[in-house]
Amino acid sequence: MMYDQNRARQPADHTRGRTERRTPGPEPLLPSDEQDKIVQRLRHALNTFADSPLDALEEAESAYDEATAQLVNALAERRRLLRAGWQDQDRETHLEELRLALRQYREITQRLLHI
């Protein structure tokens, strides 16, 4: 009976004694420092709206334009790298590399569709 009481007090951790392995999440499309700069500009626009609405809107539009331009560039670079990785591969010998490229295309396309 005492064993059950002690065990009940312990957290339910099935990985105890083992190193927890997590699958890495998708790589961000934009570096975090670039994201931070755009978010800062957008916050500035929101904070100055009461005093200068038109200037705030122009700042927000500029932040939006910067974000979209950086995303387009990042997506083009990601596509270039993916294509370079599979385009010249021998299709029979490197089936696993092709499968990985397909998985990466699927992931990025799904992420785009959920924006």
Results as ranks from 00 to 15, higher is better:
Met1Val: 11
Met2Ala: 14
Met2Asp: 13
Met2Tyr: 14
Tyr3Met: 11
Asp4Ile: 13
Asp4Lys: 12
Gln5Pro: 05
Arg7His: 13
Arg7Glu: 08
Ala8Gly: 05
Ala8Pro: 00
Ala8Glu: 07
Arg9Asn: 05
Gln10Met: 13
Gln10Leu: 13
Gln10Gly: 08
Gln10Arg: 13
Asp13Met: 07
His14Pro: 01
His14Ser: 05
His14Ile: 08
Thr15Arg: 09
Arg16Pro: 01
Arg16Gln: 07
Arg16Gly: 02
Gly17Tyr: 02
Arg18Ile: 09
Thr19Val: 08
Glu20Asn: 08
Arg21Asn: 06
Arg22Trp: 08
Thr23Leu: 13
Thr23Ile: 15
Thr23Gln: 15
Pro24Met: 04
Pro26Tyr: 06
Glu27Arg: 01
Glu27Gln: 01
Glu27Val: 02
Leu29Phe: 06
Leu29Glu: 04
Leu30Trp: 00
Pro31His: 07
Ser32Thr: 12
Ser32Val: 14
Asp33Asn: 09
Asp33Leu: 06
Asp33Ala: 06
Glu34Pro: 01
Glu34Gly: 03
Gln35Cys: 07
Asp36Gly: 11
Lys37Gln: 05
Val39Ser: 09
Gln40Asn: 06
Gln40Leu: 06
Arg41Glu: 14
Leu42Ala: 07
Leu42Met: 10
Arg43Lys: 10
Ala45Phe: 02
Ala45Val: 03
Leu46His: 10
Asn47Val: 10
Asn47Ala: 13
Asn47Lys: 12
Asn47Arg: 11
Thr48Tyr: 05
Thr48Arg: 07
Phe49His: 10
Phe49Ile: 09
Ala50Ile: 11
Ala50Gly: 09
Ser52Arg: 13
Pro53Lys: 11
Leu54Tyr: 09
Leu54His: 12
Leu57Gly: 12
Leu57Ile: 09
Glu58Ala: 10
Glu58Asn: 14
Glu59Asn: 03
Ala60Thr: 02
Ala60Cys: 12
Ser62Ala: 09
Ser62Met: 04
Ala63Thr: 03
Ala63Ile: 04
Tyr64Ile: 01
Tyr64Lys: 02
Asp65Thr: 02
Glu66Asp: 14
Ala67Glu: 14
Thr68Pro: 00
Thr68Ile: 06
Thr68Trp: 00
Ala69Cys: 04
Leu71Trp: 00
Leu71Asn: 03
Val72Ser: 11
Val72Lys: 12
Asn73Tyr: 04
Ala74Asn: 04
Ala74Ile: 00
Leu75Ser: 04
Leu75Trp: 04
Ala76Val: 02
Glu77Gln: 09
Glu77Lys: 04
Arg78Leu: 05
Arg78Pro: 02
Arg79Asn: 06
Arg79Gly: 01
Arg80Gly: 10
Leu81Asn: 15
Leu81Arg: 14
Arg83Asn: 13
Gly85Lys: 00
Gly85Leu: 02
Gly85Ala: 00
Trp86His: 04
Trp86Met: 01
Gln87Ile: 07
Asp88Gln: 15
Gln89Tyr: 14
Gln89Asp: 13
Asp90Gly: 05
Thr93Arg: 15
Thr93Gln: 13
His94Arg: 15
His94Gln: 13
Leu95Thr: 15
Glu96Lys: 15
Glu97Thr: 14
Leu98Pro: 08
Leu98Ala: 08
Leu98Lys: 04
Leu100Lys: 05
Leu102Cys: 13
Gln104Ala: 11
Gln104Ile: 03
Tyr105Ala: 03
Arg106Gly: 07
Arg106Val: 06
Arg106Lys: 15
Glu107His: 12
Glu107Asp: 15
Ile108Gly: 01
Gln110Val: 00
Gln110Asn: 06
Gln110Leu: 00
Gln110Asp: 07
Arg111Tyr: 00
Arg111Leu: 03
Leu113Ser: 11
Ile115Met: 10
Ile115Glu: 09
